[in-house]
Design a protein around this nucleic acid. Structure first.
Length: 961
RNA sequence: GCCGGGGUGGCGGAAUUGGUAGACGCGCUGGACUCAGGAUCCAGUGGGGAAGUAACCCCCGUGUGGGUUCGAGUCCCACCCCCGGCACCA
């Protein structure tokens, strides 16, 4: 019996081997055949679980492959070590955040070693160390010099639980991304990075990233949120200019009110004395609201008029000014023109508050509708309309008429003859018209709207309390779908531009506005500046000093780093609470001054770390400009999609800023991005006892503590939900190779997949089989010399030999291309199966056996490096696997000798032919061979062959009558 | 609501360019070994039917309904469902 597969012993033998041999150290000076592979560095919190393996095991396999392919691979690792969890843990446990962080780092490193995941540890960095954050501060100073870092008072997101402000990107659905607390809005003076200066380039340059997932690029695009339109200047009656941004300047003539954000600076000056109390109250109430309340959908819009009026510059209409919280101060100019006829929100608002609606854009399709209430016309109208070819529906004596394009004149003429003296009907479509027996009135301006309303009120008791024409029309459900639309269309009621077709409307209007100096073309972005101040201890101090005489003064470069004060860490403490830190002389005048007491957002730390790995110990500069330009951009960057916006957008911004300052030759940091999916696992929730680890769940999915039925959800593995699989246990039971293999085999790396213990056992079985297979062969092939002679192989040998080379091709292509390593492993399993069959035969070619064994070991080594290294050494190869070149595919093996060709008759596979490839590749010969096949011939005999399609090397398709 | 991705056996998934659907693995079924097996090995395994010595043969089948094509998981149109992002962005 052969030696059983014992991963525990084998793996321990090789754990330090690779590191000691220096296989993972990059030759930094030589960039001829360089490859910068980078995994997103982790935040060292607690322990790694199987879910983390998705990222690191994938990376390690790729790096081992690249090494064998002869690349000079730079593959560093470090720690995103500043941040709130360290501080919170420290507060709870009474340890210093630095100690807590380094304990975790040591644990992570132990686990990497156990996994066989190797890095160039000489380049290790930790963002919490002064020799790193010194340069984070340096970058801050550089941005400040360039005007890209500034201090401003603004409404900021504040997390009451984390006791700090948050960037816009860190607020998810109105809640703190980290702790889930409802975010409050506060007016504070804070530091910002001017990322909005780069909005257009961050958007445009996405096109320079063909090897990024489309999904991620799209998310960034949406986040930047570019809108093109116009800035139009309205004036208050007193003459104050009020600038509004609109994407629909073509609807300008339909503006019937103006809305300012409650925080808009002009509100104060414009509010009429008799409106002041109500306006103040509304503003306070809006300010009190949390993001969540303000964002809650389906909430009815509210607002108050401020008692002032504005003049529409295009038609001189006097329109009321309102404030409403659906207008945001942070976007555009914080003021909008409201066009209720062509914007859903404005329409709702206008209807609620009785503000007139004027249609100015024809709806698509040219449909018009008219409604005639019972008793408003003489008898016989319905018949007359039908006779004239109109589409009429009748219900309880009421008539509902739908008009096609071009029917209007005929309809108006006909219906006027039937209308009773005190009645009217509306024709709603491209414009709203009111048909009276003696006149047709159009709703094309505020004055006309009033006139129509007056007349209707006089004629009809029922509508006396109606405030606007729109409200009158809204009462009739038949009209509702035509009262507002947001499509492009021909301009109506728009003075000199009336009749402009929809396709040209926006452009023509902007041109018209520019000619008159009323407005101009403009672009707005949803992206806001990046708020980087954090009121916490565990981060890089902002290197600024506040002096009463000199103002805000940067700390001189040569005085960096501004060190975090080394306080014994016991309680919640910000830098502001530490006088030794705060008090500092002013760098400019030397007088007493105060240090800035905020630390930087940890996303600043991680926005440039990929540059530091190039020269991690350089104490003269953040990075070596020559080397950095030779090694970057990063060739392949692998991490989770959760960073699609935050980290990746910030890194792109910092790279571009440093590029513009002349420090970097490139302006995109990551050439190729790969986002791996998450590993999920059932998470059990008990209302009383919260998350229950899957291992403790009682029979029938019940809580082990109270027996209540548990709520099960398959979620991403995470410590907080207690649904993690610890690698230590897996490695103890099956070995690291098995975990590695299963992690990469479970599915495509970019997809989320549920972890399966059975799947792990499958990987284990395969490795045991492979181990047995190879170890049994070693004595027989150890001393065999000479290469395989394909010509001398028998049929089974040839098949195996071809499979071997097809597998080499497949595995190589997956590593170099789309990283579908699950299919690469499947191919290795297939090869192993065929090899096993071959070994059961009497006749074997020992040279072939040796070639298959050698290549199988090499091909599987990126996935299961321990097993590969062990077998390789037993084979007596001397060198390490990692010193051996990656297998080469023999092109001769790909030219198949015999292939199976399916024959379709009328689209169905009816026969499969085994043909020499010389025949299969020749269209004429292939067709003849197919028609000559007895099974095929039998099927088509007596039928007319209509057509024969022979695709060389693929199939034959015969169509019979 | 808008934008994107995706629906393939009992399960994870494969089919990379319009060309043999279900590779590989899990699970399941049967068998072997065994005192025993939740270990290991061998065989089978999309559904249905015919056949019964067997090779093999027939029908259906990739969310639903249409279409293009000799041929569709793959392309086009409409719809349903799931996941992700954004969400009063003017």
């Amino acid at each position: 019996m052969s030696e059983p597969y014992d991963p525990k012993t084998i793996e321990e033998r090789w754990r330090d081997f690779w590191r000691e041999k220096g296989f993972f150290k990059a030759d930094i000076e030589n960039t001829d055949r360089k490859f910068y592979y980078l995994n997103m560095f982790p935040y060292p919190s607690g322990k790694l679980h199987a879910g983390h393996g998705r990222n690191y095991i994938l990376g390690d396999a790729i790096v081992r492959f690249l090494n064998m392919r002869g690349y000079n691979v730079l593959n560093p690792m470090g720690w995103d070590a500043f941040g709130l969890p360290a501080e919170n843990a420290a507060i709870e446990q009474g340890v210093h955040p630095r100690d807590w962080t380094w304990r975790n780092i040591e644990e992570f490193k132990r686990q990497f070693r156990a996994w066989g995941v190797e890095y160039d540890w000489d380049r290790e960095i930790a963002t919490c160390e002064p020799d790193y954050y010194k340069w984070t501060q340096w970058i801050f100073l550089k941005l400040y010099e360039r005007g890209l870092a500034y201090r401003a008072a603004s409404d900021v997101n504040y997390c009451p639980h984390c006791d700090t402000v948050l960037a816009n990107e860190q607020v998810v659905g109105g809640r703190c991304e980290r702790c889930g607390s409802v975010v409050e809005r506060k007016k504070l003076t804070q530091w910002f990075f001017k990322i909005t200066d780069y909005a257009q380039r961050l958007l445009d340059d996405l096109e320079k990233l063909p090897d990024w997932p489309e999904r991620v690029k799209l998310m960034q695009k949406n986040w930047i949120g570019r809108s093109e339109g116009a800035l139009v200047t309205f004036k208050s009656e007193r003459g104050d200019p009020i600038e509004v941004f609109t994407t629909r300047p073509d609807t300008l003539w339909g503006a019937t009110f103006l809305v300012l954000a409650p925080e808009h600076p002009l509100v104060e000056a414009l509010t009429a004395p008799d409106r002041r109390a109500e306006v103040e109250e509304y503003r306070e109430q809006a300010a009190r609201q949390t993001e969540v309340e303000r964002l809650s959908t389906e909430r009815e819009k509210t607002g108050v008029p401020i008692g002032a009026y504005a003049i529409n510059p295009v038609n001189g209409e006097r329109i009321p000014i309102w404030i409403a919280d659906y207008v945001l101060m942070g976007y555009g100019t914080g003021a909008i023109m409201a066009v209720p006829a062509h914007d859903e929100r404005d329409f709702q608002f206008a209807l609620k508050y009785g503000i007139p609606v004027i249609p100015v854009i024809a709806p698509p399709g040219g449909v018009r509708k008219s409604y005639l209430r019972k008793g408003t016309t003489r008898e016989g109208l319905a018949e007359a309309l039908r006779e004239a070819g109109f589409q009429v529906a009748e219900e309880d004596g009421d008539l509902y008429v739908t008009l096609a394009e071009g029917d209007r004149e005929r309809y108006v003429a006909l219906v006027q003859g039937y209308l009773n003296p005190n009645a009217w009907t509306e024709v709603i479509g491209a414009g709203w018209e009111f048909v009276f027996p003696d006149a047709v009135l159009n709703v094309g301006s505020l004055a006309e709207e009033r006139a129509v309303l007056e007349r209707c009120r006089e004629l009809e008791q029922r509508v006396r309390e109606v405030r606007t024409v729109a409200e009158l029309l809204w009462r009739e459900k038949f009209h509702r779908d035509l009262l507002f639309h947001a499509e492009y269309g021909e301009m109506l009621n728009s003075g000199p531009l009336t009749g402009t077709p929809g396709g040209a409307a926006v452009k023509r209007t902007i041109q018209w506005l520019e000619e008159r100096g009323i407005g101009k073309h403009a672009v707005t972005y949803r992206l806001r500046d990046w708020l980087i101040s954090r009121q916490r201890y565990w981060g890089a101090p902002i290197p600024m000093v506040h002096c009463d005489r000199c103002g805000v003064v940067p700390v001189p470069e040569e005085e960096l780093p501004v060190l975090l004060p080394d306080v014994p860490f016991i309680e919640k403490k910000g830098l502001a609470d530490i006088p030794e830190f705060v008090e500092a002389p002013c760098p400019r005048c030397g007088g007493p001054a105060r240090r800035d007491t905020d630390t930087m957002d940890t996303f600043v730390d991680s926005a440039w770390y990929y540059l530091r790995y190039i020269s991690p110990k350089d104490d003269r500069q953040a990075f070596d400009p020559d080397l950095v330009n030779r090694w970057l951009p990063v060739d392949l960057y692998v991490g989770g999609v959760e960073h699609a916006i935050l980290h990746l957008l910030y890194s792109r911004f910092i790279t571009k800023a440093l590029h513009d300052m002349g420090y970097l030759a490139f302006d995109e940091p990551f050439r190729r991005l790969f986002t791996q999916g998450m590993i999920t696992y059932p998470a059990y929730w008990c209302d009383e006892h919260h998350w229950i680890p899957p291992g403790e769940v009682a029979e029938g999915s019940r809580c082990p503590h109270c027996g209540a039925p548990l709520d099960v959800q398959v979620l991403a593995m995470s410590k907080s939900k207690k649904n993690v699989v610890p690698p230590d246990e897996l490695i103890e039971k099956y070995g690291a190779d098995t975990e590695r293999l299963y992690t990469l085999f479970m599915g495509p790396p970019e997809r989320d997949i549920e972890w399966s213990e059975e799947g792990v056992r499958g990987a284990w079985r395969f490795l045991s089989r492979l181990w047995a297979l190879v170890t049994e062969q070693i004595p027989a092939i150890k001393d065999i010399k000479g290469a395989v002679e394909p010509g001398e192989l028998d049929k089974a040998g040839e098949e195996l030999w071809k499979k071997l080379h097809a597998t080499i091709k497949k595995v190589t292509e997956e590593f170099e291309g789309r990283l579908g390593l699950n299919t690469a492993i499947a191919a290795l399993m297939e090869l192993t199966g065929i090899f096993s069959d071959y070994l059961n035969r009497e006749k074997r070619d020992p040279r072939l056996v040796r070639e298959v064994v050698r290549n199988l070991i090499l091909l599987i080594s990126p996935f299961t490096p321990f097993l590969a290294e062990e077998l390789w050494s037993r084979l007596g190869e001397g060198k390490s696997v990692l010193e051996t070149p990656w297998p080469q595919c023999d092109e001769r093996a790909l030219a198949a000798g015999e292939v199976e060709i399916p024959v379709q008759i009328n689209g169905k596979v009816r026969a499969r032919l085994r043909l020499p490839s010389s025949v299969a590749e020749d269209k004429q010969a292939l067709q003849e061979a197919a028609l000559a096949d007895p099974a095929v011939a039998a099927r088509i005999s007596g039928k007319e062959v209509v057509r024969v399609i022979a695709v060389p090397g693929k199939l034959v398709s015969i169509v019979v009558g």
